[in-house]
Amino acid sequence: MRNIKIIGYGNYLPKNIVMFDGEKRYRCNGSETQLDMAVKAAKKALKNAKLDIKDIDCIVSSSAVIMQPIPCNAALIHEQIAKGTNIPAMDINTTCTSFVTALDTMSYLIEAGRYKNVLIVASDVSSEGLNEEQKESYTLFSDGASAVVITKSEDSNQGIVGSLIRTYSEGAHATEIRGGGTLRTAMKYKPEDKADYTFDMKGKPILSLCVKKLPELFKEFEEKFNVSIKDVDVVIPHQASRALPFIMQILKIDESKYVNRVSEFGNMVSVSIPYMLCDLLEKGKIKKGDKVLLCGTAAGLTCNILLLNI
């Protein structure tokens, strides 16, 4: 077990709401930016932790999308909340599961004594990159931000019991935005290429790959860490799409055990998992001693499973 604990958390949703078929989606609509939301969530997490920014020794951005190509998101967040300090700032990105990867990765560094208090911030404005011609994804996503502060725990029963990450790159192009990087630069943008600069999701290849790979990955996780998903108190899956119940059914995870708020929030990209985690903490629905499984698939196709003893 890597003994870490969450000592502060904060969520933020944009004020602007749009409705699709009776379902709310939170969309910045130009009134707020990815950076604005990241800063608000970060400040909430710090306040909740009763810490000043000077108590933090690493800032990690765990967002799916960059705010600008250079510098990294974390440096831009640092500029807003930690300017003038020596705190390092870095991005950890596995798209939708970035938060889980960041929590996983930074827990080793805390355990090793490299860092004491780490601020992890997820913030995404997927609404800026959606393709109106792809109705399913166009109506699915919400914007938002979520942040946590983690630190070492002295309780040997508290922390990360186990974690697995796998990338199946046969799904690398099942979910993508092709333009905006060096393979298709923004400098060469032409209006007829607009589709390359917006989100493209191929639902069937993603689902096919999930059905092929996830059951064996979960089985590997249970065997490697000698745990049973049946004994977990709550499963927080990435709120990927309306196919979530189908995936949970394939994994034989009962609907009473997992969080499904896709109809309320849609897919918040990297924010989905930490948002739900922080929301449960805030409402007292999970507490110290509870076993919480964070899991999800992300563009890549990357799959994360992490079992956290709160």
């Binding site: 399913e136 191929k202 639902g203 069937k204 689902l207 096919s208 059905v211 092929k212 309306r242 196919a243 189908f246």
Partner: peptide
């Protein structure tokens, strides 16, 4: 609907070890 159709195809693919294109 389209979501259920995709789910059906994926389950049949897995069961019979075949690929069904969109």
């Amino acid at each position: 609907d389209s979501l259920l159709a995709v789910q059906l195809s994926v389950l049949l693919e897995n069961k019979y070890d075949i690929d069904i294109t969109e």
